[in-house]
Nucleic acid binder design. Sequence first.
DNA 1: CCGGGTTATGCAACTAGTTGCATAAGAGAC
DNA 2: GTCTCTTATGCAACTAGTTGCATAACCCGG
Lengths: 183, 183
Amino acid sequence: MSLPHAILTALLERPSSGLELTRRFDRSIGYFWSATHQQIYRELGRLEAEGLIRALPSEQPARGQKKAYEVLPAGRAELARWTSASQDPKPHRDAMLLRLRAAAVVGTDGLEADLRRHRELHALQLAEYREIERRDFPPGKDGPEDRLRHLVLRAGIDLETFWTQWLDHALSEFARLPDTTRE
Amino acid sequence: MSLPHAILTALLERPSSGLELTRRFDRSIGYFWSATHQQIYRELGRLEAEGLIRALPSEQPARGQKKAYEVLPAGRAELARWTSASQDPKPHRDAMLLRLRAAAVVGTDGLEADLRRHRELHALQLAEYREIERRDFPPGKDGPEDRLRHLVLRAGIDLETFWTQWLDHALSEFARLPDTTRE
DNA sequence: CCGGGTTATGCAACTAGTTGCATAAGAGAC
DNA sequence: GTCTCTTATGCAACTAGTTGCATAACCCGG
């Protein structure tokens, strides 16, 4: 139940319209909490109904018109509450690991190509993160907020590094498997 | 849409009843594809209705009686199809990273304790994985199936190692933050 | 023989996320 | 001026996962 809190965070960083939020979820925030524009609009409606955010009064709210939102004090309080409350880590699900385990039973046929493709996708994401790091965290930009945000980005960078390396390892193991295992 | 395939994999490794599957999902399979017993029973019903698995005829199917299932040829074929089909990686969601980003805006108050708790949970999981590795993959146990399963376990071990280290890093950054950031 | 815990199975309702499609305004092409 | 493309907003239906609870048999102590 974190989408509303992801939106509150984004809106506190900068008041935005639904579409602007969608764009930002495609870039930074979405890297660890993805959401589609449909989800975002629905949630904006709920948050407004609950009195946690409000539409900026500047523009008229006609359809096809930008409608920007800002966070109200109640919204900030709710985000602070949620952030500090103890939460259990959610179990993660990874389809690729499951497929590999299945492959041990039904054969590895066809898997190697997708392993290779995933490796490239992770490498691409890693390059993007590094570019963001270069742009947003030059040496010297290390105020408290910068440090926290940089920490989050580092997790992304290190995770993508991990996955590229692990997939390389997996591919090298594949190369050593006897052909019979591949069905 | 991978729960049915997780169940097919588990049943191919060993025919089981719903409860046995639940136990196995709490241990090995569930480490990368978790499921509750309610999900499992529901899915077993669907898989049986689709003709991918069948109840072993040994026991009578009364309530409170063990009912074990085995995979039919159609089920094995479906699992092989799914394993080899190309799939896009799902975007991951990580509430802790989101909370850290929120903390950069609303303050880090209360977060540090949970960071520490998560660090311990990851360390515990890591110890469990290492124990499984010691028990299930002694030197010499390296047939093709073993190699694949070991690869999956290695991902788990390396991920938990990564998270413990990253959380240590995060905690050391917290120690250096000025008190004002902590609200 | 009965009362409480454990094993085993399962339904129903709810919450969260995804997919498909609809609507409307403005911008520029011709 | 109207056609089409892009921007912007949003509803509805569906799929997957979670939570809460119900049922029933067996097992063991007293």
